[in-house]
Amino acid sequence: MKKIYSRPKCLKDAIFHYCPGCGHSIIHRLVAELIDEMDLRGKIICIPPAGCAVLAYNYLDIDMCESAHGRGCAVATGFKRAQPDKLVLTYQGDGDMAAIGTAETIHAANRGERITSIFVNNAVYGMTGGQMAPTTILGQKTTTSPFGRREAFEGYPLMITDLIATMKGAAFVARNSLATPAKIKATKKSIKKAFEVQEAGLGYSLVEVLSPCPTNWKLSPIESFKYLEEIMEKEYPLKIFKDITKNKDSNI
């Protein structure tokens, strides 16, 4: 009998604490698979966010350093400048990336820091209990936008990925989704590309991943994957915003 599926080596044998239907465990697995496949364990340093995924170090068997809420890209910059030969990854949520850490994110991207960010967008603050995120979509009800997000009061969803794509320092910028197995495969492909771009020293790489939060969306896991595809992907179209390797001689 041929074994075709098993736990990646650098994914610890632990039960995820994430809620049923949460996207983090899928993304963790993708990252773990890529670390194995690309033989990165000995050189990767990951900065988990303040949020549900702060406990990523309970699952990923790699060097990890917590950062304060929003400071992931600054901490990553310190690591990368101090150790340019390492692969540095920030794993961030929407509040981390696009609210409290907007400055750190944008400036790291603009400097072309050779780091990679995985930006998990579920349009809500998960760990704190479902408050409004910068990416909460218009009309979406959260505990701090109980009447639904209204543009007149709370403003519009912040398109940080679109914004970063305009920056010269950004080398690879993509938005993917976990809505279907095929889309999960495409997400893995983007993360792989982002790692390759960093390895090649081309600049900042960012992969936004639209991810379900059934608990705070108050939907069942199955309903939330439907919501992800039908509502979230409309607001946040999936696309490769930028890939500078497309226009130059490159092996990657």
């Binding site: 350093c65 950062s67 400071r71 901490v75 910059t77 310190g78 750190e104 400036h107």
Partner: peptide, 20 residues
Amino acid sequence: LQGESEIASINMLLGAAASG
């Protein structure tokens, strides 16, 4: 490295210090 703010700079410092 001139950071974009004092907050960014101290967090860069944290990363470098954790790098040894």
